[in-house]
Nucleic acid binder design. Structure first.
Lengths: 232, 232
DNA sequence: AGTGTAGGTGTACGGCGTACACTTGTCAAG
DNA sequence: CTTGACAAGTGTACGCCGTACACCTACACT
């Protein structure tokens, strides 16, 4: 009784609502436990209802990627290329840190979504506007984008899940087998409470790498400018 | 009749055989279609038989990683750190290129396997032996290991799967939306048969990035050496 | 009042990882 | 030669997954 006319009975689903719920679920339950069924339950709806808004799980994931990429700040105009690129990449990092599943999902897809493509395009544009030739921009994008060890790993990123006593024992064990790893782990946490883990300032490391690359790009650009052949 | 005594009836399973079969299956059917059931079938065995050799799928994947990492050449002694690191990383890249699923699997695990740890350790050792301080080595490992855009993407890596006519139409469409992407794609394939894709020399790009980083590391090391405080 | 349609439902199917109870083949000890 | 322990392989079953397909239902518009 007193039921609203023209207002949908429940809250009404929509692609947007589905995507937001999916992102939220992935954020705090982990991407591996995001299923159509759980997502539906979260939305108070039967699993198949989702399929009226997304074609399949693939498309759901695409949409989730776009939500995350949409959180990256647009480029700020009126600065030199270097600080503009720097700010943009740090903004991208912030977005991806808030959604730890996102990088893996993006990488696992074989084609970029239009939103990702647009992000790439505008990033390329920043280098071009900064005076980089097409070719140099091409190389620079590869440098920025590719991991250079075959792989990365935050070592010991689970430090909180095991008891400290056990950890100390394992530590001595490991120190024998991987002396160099321990040496770095030790140095990184010289002041930290635990022997391992929290002593490494991820943000610092990220910016260290970023600036190293940007400085490298800058000198390449200068070399290029002082040659006869520009562009192409 | 004439049955061998002391020789197992079929070929006899073993952890090693299971892992090799799994790697082979992932290599040519894709990691997403590697299931315990299919793997078992490949080995002419019932699914549950696998569980006598690996505890669960997680452990199977760990073992597969170790197989791949085991294909990376050991460091060659007697050269300067720079060429040694270079060769080692290129060897790692070769291994990972042969098993395209490997990087994603490695990244998706939250703890490195011992084999991966050992690889890291020996890589760190190469920098230390080359005169890098603990701290600088730490930063340098981060630089090498972390992708610096939130993500990477070989754009257009599916060029072969759609017909060229369609592709040309889409291309004109895309050129309007992502001019910079097209500019680079065009430049990369100035001589190539297709407008897109094969013109980009991945290997060149990889080495470009690698050398940019290594040169950067080198000058950092020189700066460091000419300071008062060494090490720690 | 009648009807088309968008959005939500219910049922069902095949595939997945794996727990658990079982058979079978091998070999050492009696 | 028998026995029986043990490792290796089997069979069945359960609960999860993505999703095809037929259905219902409520509103928008004629």
């Amino acid at each position: 009784m007193a039921q609203q006319i023209n207002a949908p009975r429940r809250v009404q689903l929509s692609k947007d609502r589905v995507l937001r719920a999916a992102v939220a679920l992935a954020d705090d339950a982990g991407i591996e436990s995001l299923s159509m069924r759980k997502l539906a339950e979260e939305l108070g709806v039967v699993p198949m209802a989702l399929y009226k808004h997304v074609a399949n799980k693939e498309e759901l994931l695409d949409g989730m990627i776009d939500v995350v990429v949409g959180e990256i700040d647009p480029p700020v105009p009126g600065t030199d290329w270097k600080t503009a690129v720097r700010q943009r990449i740090l903004s991208a990092r912030r977005a991806l840190l808030h959604h730890p599943w996102a990088s893996r999902v993006i990488e696992s897809k074989k084609n970029p979504t239009p939103v990702v493509l647009e992000y790439m395009d505008s990033m390329i544009g920043m280098f071009r506007a900064g005076g980089f030739s097409v070719n140099l921009t091409h190389h620079v994008m590869h440098t920025i984008g590719s991991r250079v060890l075959g792989f990365t790993q935050e070592l010991f990123n689970d430090s909180r899940t095991v008891d400290p006593e056990m950890q100390a024992i394992m530590l001595r064990e490991l120190a024998g087998k991987y002396p160099y790893v321990m040496e770095i782990a030790g140095a990184a946490s010289h002041e930290g409470e635990s022997v391992v883990g929290p002593g490494c300032d991820d943000q610092f490391e990220f910016e260290f790498a970023l600036d190293l690359l940007l400085d490298g790009f800058e000198s390449l650009r200068h070399e290029e400018s002082s040659e006869t052949t520009r562009n192409r």
